[in-house]
Design a protein around this nucleic acid. Structure first.
Length: 301
DNA sequence: ACTCAGGATGGTA
DNA sequence: TACCATCCTGAG
């Protein structure tokens, strides 16, 4: 496992220029990172760049010919906040190499080259994936946007658009579910969101303590919260708690696994067992490559 | 007009 | 323990 980890931050090639930060990296593709289904906090600009909000900062990322241009953050901010967010301490070329021993994963990881798993903020991830239950990406993003605009703090403007931070748990905990439903269009997820917010506001989750729990125990703990079942819990484990051996099974990844690996329809739990057995501690990465590849290419559909 | 979407929940067998 | 109908909403 250690061989996938870089130890020094200075191993990435990034320089400050007047146009922004120039990042030269063999495994970093903004489109694949933001469109592979792991996050909902970004906005696509006219020039093809992605603007995302993370921990109260607005960052813009644009793919150029031989580098990635990162705008609106200083080099210090980048190292301080976004190095971890973009998981830059992990060696994805090594992960791809290992996964590529399997032909299907070679195809999928070549297809989704430059995907990186974002290390996202806890509360925002919890609420975002509670909203994601039986929901579509467009509507999920829209709900989160409205919640931020209505209950979050104003951060600033970028490329003509105003941005707001995702609200703190204490704020969402006091919101009337009916109001949430009316404005954010979250439907039957309204009470789940407020109740889960109350638990987080009361300190039910603690990143450092939770981190010491086994993946299995932490999953059970997460599933005690309203709106969090097996799949949502897995997403939180993978995208917030760095539990990369997790393999969230949604309808897409289920179809992909049944079509490309298993050969016939099986219950979701079996897909999970199969994948975790097959991919081991790289299951989370494999899931992202397979999900992106499968959804874009409509595999099994 | 109509289906169904990146599941969770509560009830039933 | 394993299934199953039901749950808001609106994009396609």
């Amino acid at each position: 496992m250690m061989r996938y980890i870089f130890e020094e931050k200075n191993q990435i090639d990034i320089k400050e220029t007047r146009g922004g930060l120039v990042l030269k990296h063999e495994s970093f593709n903004p489109t694949h990172i933001f469109e592979c289904g792991q996050c909902f906090n970004f906005n696509i600009e006219e020039d093809g760049s992605y603007t995302a909000v993370h921990l109260g900062r607005i960052i813009n990322v644009l793919q150029k010919e031989d580098h990635v241009l990162i705008r609106n953050v200083s080099l210090d901010e980048f190292y301080e906040i976004f190095y971890d967010y973009f998981d830059l301490g992990t060696d994805y070329s090594e992960i791809k190499k290992d996964l590529s021993e399997n032909e299907i994963l070679k195809t999928a990881s070549d297809y989704g080259y430059g995907i990186r798993i974002l290390n996202q903020e806890m509360f925002e991830t919890v609420i975002s994936f509670i909203i994601s239950a039986n929901n579509g990406i467009t509507r999920i993003k829209n709900s989160i946007k409205i919640i931020s605009e209505r209950y979050g703090n104003y951060i600033g403007e970028y490329m003509g658009r105003k941005y707001y931070a995702f609200p703190r748990p204490e704020v969402l905990a006091k919101v009337d579910p009916l109001e949430l439903r009316e404005f954010a269009r979250v439907g039957f997820r309204d009470v789940r969101i407020v109740e889960a917010s109350k638990m987080v506001a009361d300190g039910y989750l603690d990143f450092d303590i939770d981190q010491t729990l086994s993946t299995e125990d932490l999953k059970e703990k997460l599933m005690q919260m309203p709106g969090i079942g097996p799949k949502v819990a897995d997403c939180i484990l993978l995208f917030t708690y760095h539990k990369r051996e997790t393999f969230p099974v949604d309808v897409w990844i289920k179809r992909v696994m049944e079509t490309l690996f298993i050969g016939h329809e099986v219950p979701k739990k079996l897909v999970d067992d199969y994948a975790r057995e097959y991919f081991g501690n790289l299951a989370g990465y494999a899931q992202q490559y397979l999900f992106y590849y499968g959804r874009e290419e409509k595999i099994g559909k």
